[in-house]
């Protein structure tokens, strides 16, 4: 086979396109909110579930050494399974505050949920239409975000908190 200029061009063109395709397969197309670890939380304001006048914003969180923001709803079954870890955490006397964000829920149901299972939260914010949660990069609940006093996300838990993740949180906030 004679090697000519045209042949080389055509071959390298084919290799280039196929190479791009290979590379394209490797990159993850799905938006993965785990990448949020290391980023900073900003621009949010939440009103208390039972009291519209009471707000929480980033200024309040800067005062805490660590804050765990937990997204929950009364209609969410896995939220029930992680609840005992949240209670343990709030009883652990560690320097951590827990903020609950009530996701697409009814006020009555949310209050019933908390009186039935106990309330681990220092503040319960409401997010009826789920928009604030989206700003936090949440796509389903339960999810939790652990931030430090500079409002930087140091851990993100997708799905219910379990024994392992509970211990990891304890380790991180020591």
């Amino acid at each position: 086979m004679k090697i000519s200029f045209t042949k080389i061009i055509i071959l390298s063109f084919a290799i280039f396109i196929l190479g791009i395709f290979w590379q394209g397969l490797k990159t993850n197309k799905n938006y993965d909110t785990k990448n949020l670890v290391g980023s900073k939380i900003s621009n949010f304001q939440l009103s208390e579930i039972n009291n519209h006048q009471q707000y929480i914003s980033e200024e309040n969180l800067k005062k805490n050494n660590y804050t765990l923001i937990n997204f929950f709803a009364s209609w969410c079954a896995p939220c029930r399974t992680e609840h005992k870890y949240l209670l343990n955490l709030s009883n652990s006397k560690k320097e951590i505050k827990i903020i609950g964000i009530n996701f697409k829920d009814k006020k009555i149901n949310a209050n019933n949920f908390l009186s039935e299972l106990g309330n681990p939260y220092d503040f319960v914010g409401k997010d009826i239409d789920g928009k604030t949660s989206i700003l936090f990069g949440i796509y389903g609940i339960p999810e939790s975000i652990l931030i430090n006093n500079e409002l930087i996300v140091i851990k993100k838990i997708i799905g219910p908190i379990d024994e392992i993740q509970f211990n990891e949180i304890l380790k991180l906030i020591q």
């Binding site: 086979m1 042949k7 055509i10 071959l11 084919a14 196929l18 395709f21 290979w22 397969l25």
Partner: peptide
């Protein structure tokens, strides 16, 4: 992704064998 890898391997095989035979 494993589907993509398989089809792409086969596609590459098709393209290169077609080019080889054609050039020859």
């Amino acid at each position: 992704p494993s589907r993509g890898i398989y089809i792409l391997s086969f596609l590459s095989f098709m393209i290169f064998s077609a080019l080889t035979i054609f050039f020859k």
